[in-house]
Design a protein around this nucleic acid. Structure first.
Lengths: 132, 132
DNA sequence: AGGACACATAAGCGGTCCTTTATATAGCAA
DNA sequence: TTGCTATATAAAGGACCGCTTATGTGTCCT
């Protein structure tokens, strides 16, 4: 009953994921983990070169925390090493939701609401509020 | 030579898009525009019910500005009406990039329907630094 | 025990986001 | 002109983000 509740939760979930991904460092982390699978924080840190510069260890740790919050990566400790993995299921699930968000599960929408604009004179520099 | 330059730009681009999408109101906007195609700001505003509450007009305007910054929506003025459209090309392109980010360009996943989520409850024992 | 290593957390700061309320601009109509 | 509609912008404040430097915690080794 009231499926909009779960839908609303989905929006919040999707938001969390998108926010977690909306950072260049974190995108790099996701890519590295995605390509190379489980690896140590230190190994990850050594490969993390973002703006031509490598990312400091505390910063990597912080970004990993962000990704963990969104449950995009998981970490497990073994001895003094911490291994992190990308949760591919979750990642793909988010992509799927994003995909369905626009086109809908039906995948086909002809959409053609005739633009009510009739031959108006040369539009005087349409300022819809684009640039300040 | 040095293809990482264009790649680095891609990261920034992707970041902009993800940030623009990382908001519940904006996700709703994208969905509505995605399903119903071009529509007026006012029409959009009237359909925008996010937390059970409908979004104020200035706020919708502001969120549209955010989406415009990321070039996810475009607006055109006709008379005193402003029509907005979702740039599906851009949207899909971002999804593609996200998909390729993890698995590599050689094998882009076709975004299959969700397999029944395996109950992977976060074992409360693991304290790698999860919660304070 | 002491020390080196792997990683997390604290404190602090400038910046951006999100929201509300109030006001401004642009076009149309009488 | 006045007034109404559609939309944008301003101002202000609280919240969160991204980063740096410094310090803490846990683990292994000798």
């Amino acid at each position: 009953m009231d499926e909009s509740i779960s839908t609303e939760r989905d929006y919040l979930d999707l938001k969390r994921t998108l926010r977690a991904l909306g950072d260049v460092v974190r995108l790099h982390i996701v890519e590295i983990l995605g390509r190379q699978g489980e690896m140590t924080v230190t190994d990850l840190t050594q490969q993390l070169v973002v703006g031509g510069r490598l990312v400091s260890q505390p910063l990597v740790s912080w970004h990993l925390t962000m990704l963990r919050r969104a449950t995009l990566v998981q970490t497990r400790r073994t001895g003094r090493l911490v291994y992190c993995t990308l949760d591919r299921e979750r990642y793909q699930a988010s992509l799927r939701m994003l995909s369905e968000l626009v086109v809908g599960p039906s995948q086909t929408l002809p959409l053609r609401p005739a633009p009510p604009v009739v031959g108006s004179a040369p539009s005087p520099a349409d300022r819809t509020g684009a640039r300040r």
